[in-house]
C-alpha cells in the first residue's frame, strides 16, 4: 500500500516535469528563418533613396504576379542574374520588387546605375531582419508571389531556364 503511494507520487512527479518542459518548449525560443512560409509576411520598410516607408500590403496589393528579389551590391551572383531581371522587367505581367540586403547605400546606387534598374520598388533591409522574415537562405534569392501567396521560391541566382519557368507561370 505504502509502496503504491510512493509509486504514484513518482509517476505524478515525472508527469509534472513533462508538462513543464512541454510548456517550456512552446515558449518558442529562436529567431531562425521559417523554412516554408506560404503567404507573404507583413512588414514595413524604407524605400531605397527615398525617406518614406511602405507597408507590405501596399506593395503586393494588385492581382498581379510579383517577383521579390533579394540582392546586394557585394553579391557576385546578383550581378550575373541582373541582366535576366532587366529582361524580365520588360514583361508587363510581372512587377519586380527588390529587397536590398545588408548593403552600403552608395554601392547599391552605383550597382543600379551601372547595370540598370529592373525593380519597380526597392525596399531596404539594412540589418537583414526582413530577409529573415521571408525565410530567406541568403542572397540572391527570389520569391514568385501571386495574390499575397508565395508561389515558388528560388534559392540562388536565377538562370535562363528558371526565367522561362517564371514566364510560364505568368502567361
Amino acid at each position: 500500500m505504502r509502496n503504491r503511494i510512493i509509486y504514484s507520487l513518482i509517476v505524478i512527479f515525472f508527469l509534472f516535469v513533462f508538462v513543464i518542459l512541454y510548456k517550456g518548449l512552446s515558449n518558442s525560443n529562436l529567431y531562425t528563418p521559417k523554412a516554408n512560409i506560404k503567404s507573404i509576411p507583413e512588414f514595413s520598410s524604407e524605400i531605397f533613396l527615398k525617406k518614406n516607408t511602405v507597408n507590405s500590403s501596399d506593395i503586393f496589393n494588385k492581382k498581379n504576379y510579383y517577383l521579390l528579389n533579394i540582392w546586394a551590391s557585394w553579391c557576385l551572383p546578383c550581378r550575373d542574374e541582373h541582366p535576366l531581371l532587366i529582361n524580365l522587367s520588360k514583361n508587363q505581367k510581372i512587377e519586380i520588387i527588390g529587397l536590398n540586403y545588408k548593403d552600403n547605400l552608395n554601392n547599391a546606387n552605383k550597382f543600379i546605375n551601372e547595370l540598370g534598374n529592373p525593380y519597380s520598388t526597392i525596399l531596404l533591409d539594412r540589418d537583414g531582419t526582413k530577409a529573415i522574415e521571408w525565410g530567406a537562405f541568403g542572397v540572391p534569392e527570389s520569391f514568385l508571389i501571386y495574390d499575397n501567396k508565395i508561389v515558388k521560391r528560388y534559392i540562388g541566382p536565377l538562370n535562363l531556364k528558371l526565367i522561362d519557368e517564371i514566364k510560364n507561370y505568368i502567361k
Binding site: N27, S28, N29, L30, Y31, T32, P33, I132
Partner: peptide, 9 residues
C-alpha cells in the same frame, strides 16, 4: 549568427 537569445526575441 542566426541565434537570438529567447529573452531578446
Amino acid at each position: 549568427e542566426n541565434y537570438m537569445p529567447p529573452e531578446v526575441k
